[in-house]
Amino acid sequence: MSMTILTVDDSRTMRDMLKMSLLRAGFTVVQAEDGVHGLEVLQEQHADVIITDINMPRMDGFGFIEGVRGKDAFKATPILVLTTEGDPEKKARAKQAGASGWIVKPFNPEKLIDAIRRVAA
């Protein structure tokens, strides 16, 4: 049984890249296009790890993370945020919202898998 990863990103390009990298690494991938959609998906889909963008329409990554952590079922689900900046404030804010870690864009597949490995039980 492979792990299921939920990716939340408004950019199709980024979703496709994540998907390709993750599928190649043997993960199952579920996608959502923004925070609101991500929360909807989580009502029906299990995810072992969540990867989310920060800048998104409707509901940004911070709102999404808080929404996820607000649900008992997902308290222990690792969440990685995608960030382009080496911005400590943004990382700190994501952590405060409940993120487990981050992936700096542009990422390569190894970095991505490494990051997942560091949070996924």
Partner: peptide, 11 residues
């Protein structure tokens, strides 16, 4: 890095 202001937290 410059301080970034973030978008609103909620929808």
């Amino acid at each position: 890095a410059q301080a970034m202001s973030e978008p609103e937290l909620h929808v």
